[in-house]
Design a protein around this nucleic acid. Structure first.
Lengths: 204, 204
DNA sequence: GTCTATACCGCGATAGAC
DNA sequence: GTCTATCGCGGTATAGAC
């Protein structure tokens, strides 16, 4: 569960001299995202890395462990960033909500692949492999609910059902994941402000 | 491609005396939605229907054809309904947009299973099996764009990027599909008006 | 740690009797 | 149209040499 990370800071950018384990994780990230988990074979991954299929098992005991590591490396940095944005009390709640939305949409638009979709794949959820992503998503939902609540009171709205409105805001942001399925090359600079403005209009 | 439907009107409700073919489609709808297409085996489907696996091939030539039929039966009625709502010129554009959103959210919330997710599964898209759903989605997008455009002029807004705003509205509605993955029992009566109000706030 | 060889299983689909 | 039997393939994972 808790894993020590000893790298200085800039590690996840994929050095040219990455370890074999790291290259496996990166190949799997692409393949799982574009083909799905069940439809990606261990041979696909090994081919992409340039090793033979059984060599994967020197680094991971079972296929599912590769997916777990993909999750960890994908969502760890974003969670940290969310916490920082959430805590910056120098801004109004509306500004913090807006910044969070913009950051979130940019993450969903600009990652190399549409990794966020992974947590919604039925085979991933059914095999209980989405625990990390579900936890991340739930934590993020709580942050959104806090900010939406603060923004509402800031705007003098006390009548609204906070839970439902947070669901709507969350739906608006996460919907970007599905948009990206239709168009893999979303323009973050165009969409992020538009979604931010939409969220702020909803809580106003 | 074009298939004659000779049933009177009420056929898709699954009679107790359904044909074997129809029971296959209904079992597959549930299994594909909850386990994914690749992860659902033809034996799974046959077991659910109460026949042996090879008997499926008396009704469908290949597994993919079952998915195609699931798509057809799922999306045909909704498209017809969309057309009707879109064409009702007795209402203002805002009202028509609101009604369309409410209807759409209710469809996404209340179907027996989260079928809409099917069109976003990587393995379905990669094998070119999402054509029907993609066409449905594109057609729906055009309807939304028209209504969003009319609502904007109705509200005196001419400055806005119509394409981007339509993407935002669409994202808001489709995001419900992902919400339902987290919570399969969404309350349509609570969410549909909330999403409608959010959309109307965004175009105001 | 990577390789070759292979075990073992479950998949989609076919053949042919009834 | 459904059954039993089975084929051929490709999946994950292991064994053991190097």
């Amino acid at each position: 569960m808790s894993e020590t990370v000893d790298a200085p800071a800039e590690r996840s950018e994929s050095h040219p001299r990455s370890s074999a384990r790291q290259r496996i994780v990166e190949a799997a990230t692409e393949l799982f995202s574009t083909r799905g988990y069940a439809a990606t074979t261990t041979r696909d991954i090994a081919d992409r890395v340039g090793i033979k299929q059984p060599s994967l098992y020197s680094h991971f005991a079972v296929k599912a462990d590769i997916l777990i590591e993909v999750e960890l490396q994908t969502f760890r940095p974003t969670v940290e960033r969310f916490e920082a944005l959430h805590a910056d009390k120098a801004l109004t709640a509306g500004d913090r909500l807006g910044q969070l939305v913009e950051f979130d949409v940019r993450m969903l638009c600009t990652g190399s692949w549409n990794v966020a979709l992974l947590g919604y794949l039925p085979e991933v959820r059914r095999e209980g492999l989405a625990a990390g992503m579900a936890a991340h998503s739930h934590e993020l939902f709580l942050v959104y609910r806090t900010l939406v609540g603060e923004a509402l009171t800031e705007n003098g709205r006390t009548e609204t059902d906070l839970g439902t409105l947070t669901e709507v805001v969350f739906s608006l942001v996460e919907g970007i994941i599905l948009r990206r399925v239709h168009d893999p090359h979303l323009d973050a600079d165009r969409l992020a402000p538009a979604v931010r403005d939409a969220v702020l209009a909803v809580v106003r």
